[in-house]
């Protein structure tokens, strides 16, 4: 049970209960503000009954031609708000916007292989491992350097589901730029 609404810049003053989690990166201000000023309808937050923030999703759309897609930049849920289906709810918002508003071919995301709980959730939502990205995550002194799983889910526009045919070999980070 939560209120889903657009994220606001002022929410950054009270998202610590979410961002102190070790899997959640706190980015430079410009990063958040750029997402807000570019794709405000793909930046959603869940708020609890006592008005504390429970989790949020930052997304964007990018690519050309059949690569036009929605991308999950960050999806995070506060520890005490896990196992409530919030992650799925937030993902649904992005998928719906990617499909209905932006008419994308697919949605993709990157996740640490060590984050097995998240991977399980994405698999349940229909995402598949599309490719691995070499050393996508660099160490920040807290989290180690790791490959990324690039996971994808085709949307209805991709009738032939060409966007979700897995690649056989890992790719480098620069190969993931659109």
């Amino acid at each position: 049970m939560s209120t889903f609404r657009r994220f606001r810049a002022m929410d950054m003053f009270r998202f610590n209960n979410i961002n102190l989690d070790r899997y959640t990166e706190t980015y430079d201000l410009s990063f958040y503000l750029t997402y807000l000023s570019s794709w405000p309808d793909l930046y959603v937050v869940a708020e609890s009954a006592d008005r504390s923030l429970m989790g949020y999703l930052m997304g964007k759309v990018e690519g050309k031609g059949e690569e036009w897609h929605g991308h999950v930049t960050a999806l995070t849920v506060a520890p005490e708000c896990r196992r409530l289906g919030l992650g799925r709810g937030l993902m649904r918002v992005l998928e719906e916007a990617s499909e209905r508003i932006y008419d994308c071919y697919f949605v993709d995301l990157f996740v640490r292989p060590s984050n097995t709980v998240a991977i399980q959730m994405y698999e349940c939502l229909g995402y598949i491992l599309y490719r691995q990205v070499i050393d996508y995550y660099m160490t920040d002194g807290v989290m180690p350097t790791e490959y990324a799983h690039d996971m994808r889910k085709a949307l209805s526009r991709d009738v032939a589901k060409r966007s979700v045919v897995p690649l056989k070999h890992p790719v480098n980070v620069q190969d993931t730029f659109f």
Partner: peptide, 23 residues
């Protein structure tokens, strides 16, 4: 940086951000 992002909000036409960014 915040003023630059305010500029982006005008540029991208995401006017709902203006009051929020200023606050």
């Amino acid at each position: 940086r915040i003023p630059r992002e305010l500029e982006s909000a005008y540029g991208n036409g995401t006017y709902s951000n203006i009051t929020d960014f200023l606050a």
